[in-house]
């Protein structure tokens, strides 16, 4: 049973860092939800013991789902913790540094919440990180910064299959998978016709490429466009990987 699992001090440190990190304001809801799910998994129970909130309690439902998803994704709580720390690191948490600035983030929070009348008009800076959360409300009029619509509209859920890990470049996850499932076909094409080595080469994950090669992945396998991993990495401009494959 999971409740016995004791997260490491690094986890607590990261959680406390995130509880005051301004970087959280910039991450997407899906990342926040993943953090939430992992946190509940690691500190409360493997999965939620309440019934799923109604469709119309959107926030509650999203959080419940995130918690359930965390437990589904990570059989072993140690992996869940690793994932939590990985996200925290991406958001600027640093285990060695954070212990000494425990005070600073608290102050930042206070500063951020300061009543408007207390704004120091004599020393207005343009520091963009100090008023998180309303970055887009510049007043409203004007043109718009648009970016390309993602195919699915939302971030892809984490895919922990062999191909999914080759895409995301998660070396640790891939090692775990390779250790635990000895009979994986390293050259199997996915539903679009790509072998894991194609995907790792294309997405530029050097270490994953090395690992796949070390495990005997086929260097000559062709992708749907007829490209070998070497050709693919060259076309994608991944010269570091092309060098490895050319050996």
């Amino acid at each position: 049973m999971l409740t016995e699992y004791q997260p490491s001090s690094a986890f607590h440190n990261a959680a406390s860092h995130l509880s005051s990190a301004s970087s959280l304001n910039k991450v997407s809801t899906s990342v926040k939800l993943e953090l939430y799910g992992l946190f509940k998994y690691l500190t409360v129970a493997k999965s939620p013991n309440t019934s799923r909130p109604s469709l119309f309690d959107m926030t509650g439902r999203a959080k419940w789902d995130a918690w359930a998803a965390a437990s589904k994704k990570h059989e072993n709580p140690a992996n869940a913790e690793l994932r939590y720390l990985e996200i925290a690191t991406n958001l600027g948490w640093n285990e060695s540094e954070s212990s000494k600035d425990e005070e600073a983030p608290q102050q930042a929070i206070k500063a951020g919440k300061k009543d408007v009348d207390e704004i120091d008009l004599d020393n207005l800076s343009d520091d963009e990180d100090e008023t998180p959360g309303n970055a887009s409300a510049s007043g409203g009029l004007g043109v718009v910064v648009s970016t390309l619509n993602q195919v699915d509209g939302v971030e892809q859920p984490m895919d922990h299959s062999l191909h999914g890990l080759a895409v995301s470049g998660e070396l640790t996850g891939l090692k775990l998978l390779l250790d635990s499932s000895k009979n994986l076909d390293l050259n199997a094409p996915d539903e679009y016709g790509y072998a894991p080595l194609h995907l790792a080469c294309d997405r530029g994950h050097v270490e994953v490429v090395k690992l796949l090669l070390a495990q005997g992945a086929n260097k000559e396998v062709k992708d749907p466009d007829g490209l070998t991993p070497l050709e693919l990495s060259q076309e994608a401009g991944r010269m570091d990987i092309a060098e490895i494959l050319a050996i």
């Binding site: 406390s16 959280l24 304001n25 809801t29 926040k32 946190f39 500190t43 926030t59 999203a62 959360g133």
Partner: peptide, 26 residues
């Protein structure tokens, strides 16, 4: 610890109205 962080998560999920809205509408 648990209370703090779950509050935080609540806050960060609902704080940004725009993102919360996406959840609503989807």
């Amino acid at each position: 610890q648990e209370d703090n962080t779950s509050d935080l998560e609540l806050q960060s999920v609902s704080e940004s109205e725009s993102e919360a809205e996406e959840i609503h509408t989807s």
